[in-house]
Design a binder for these strands. Sequence first.
DNA 1: ACGGGTTTAGACCACCCGGTCTATAAACGG
DNA 2: CCGTTTATAGACCGGGTGGTCTAAACCCGT
Lengths: 236, 236
Amino acid sequence: MRRGIEFKKKARIIIVDDNYEHLSGIKELIEIESDFDVVATATSASVAISLIKKYRPEIVLMDINMPEKDGLTAIAEIEKLDLGVRIIALTGYDDPDLIFRAMKIGAKGYILKTMASAQLIYAIDEVAAGKIYLPATLSSRFFEYFQQSFKEETESADDEENLLNYLTQREEEVLDLLTQGITYKGVAQKLFISETTVKTHVNNIFQKLQVNDRTQAVLYALNNGFLNRRKVKIAI
Amino acid sequence: MRRGIEFKKKARIIIVDDNYEHLSGIKELIEIESDFDVVATATSASVAISLIKKYRPEIVLMDINMPEKDGLTAIAEIEKLDLGVRIIALTGYDDPDLIFRAMKIGAKGYILKTMASAQLIYAIDEVAAGKIYLPATLSSRFFEYFQQSFKEETESADDEENLLNYLTQREEEVLDLLTQGITYKGVAQKLFISETTVKTHVNNIFQKLQVNDRTQAVLYALNNGFLNRRKVKIAI
DNA sequence: ACGGGTTTAGACCACCCGGTCTATAAACGG
DNA sequence: CCGTTTATAGACCGGGTGGTCTAAACCCGT
């Protein structure tokens, strides 16, 4: 029941941390230094989830390093509920893989326990305002990881000995149709050539890709960036 | 030939912008307000690339909105050269798609032309120091886009009517082997069952997935997150 | 003009694949 | 305890698939 005019509605927060000392520390900090409303706290992910269902907070502060059900799976589950809860992840160290995974599954912020309390409040402020907040140092880490993973992807796609490069243009067309699950007859009709011609092309493709059947050819094509060629050129 | 002690080696910069007014503006700004060394400027991407090959700068400021060869493809080409050049992208507006694509292909920073000159210098400083720099407002935009794209991906993977859910465990095993390009005979050997049993399973799979042949079944499996099921659970 | 690569195409054959029908044993759920 | 689901498997058959050989027409570069 919302009533009256709200200049700055007190966002409700739930804090989750298996370390009770730290949990109450953050709770006090928030209650004193900000005007957010800590409606509940939990020391385990499963308890947290039921509390979230009950209280429907705007913000959840979630420690990632917890025994049993870890914070990441907890975040994934909460996001799946689709309650509009905005989650801020919390850990002791700036592991880029952790940051990447947390942001990937939908965390709206990520801060380190070692950071100044003012930064925590600021992060909550930003996230409560609908933004996504990552401190500069962490976003730098994130992007390194992000770019690295894409670099590996494109390297494996066009790099070194990609047997797809040996295919002629016509063979690529045929392979393209094969990757759509079309039969020889269908390919022949689409390309306005005879079925035996298709077979010749396909056999050449098999030899060039060093595979034995159409399925393996399709898999090779898909795993080695056959579709990417166009994407890279058109869409980047 | 590096010699002696360097407190702060003057990073060499090349600026690329099709608008000459703006180009010289930035050039002057950098020369006056910082101690970086603008070794060259270009008003087109193709010229820029030859200049980069020649001067091997540490930093490139690249305008994204250019006629002919646009900035994004230029960045992709420069990154492909693998010269260790660190590129900062530059545009007038904060289009999240542009930001995402620029960062994806390897830009080390992204700033708006409307931003204060101090921020430009700061960005160059950070990038020159090996970090990746995105202003808070842009990184917020980036993450919204990033999370959205992942959300769609997982939705399409496990969402609604995924015919893969109707498969029995045994059928999944068989399909899994099919997605590796193995023949009936091979599957029969791997699962220690007769070849005709495999055929029975496969036929059931075809009917459940509403496809006609193994290739289409494999494609359906791949496009509907067959591999993801495990990934989501194990790796998040 | 000649040789090489590409695209086209035919013939023949073995066999894998996909469709259908039938059937048994185990497991599971009501 | 009985019906359903699942896993197993045999038989049969037709057509699609893959292997091999041959060859003509074409473009391209030297």
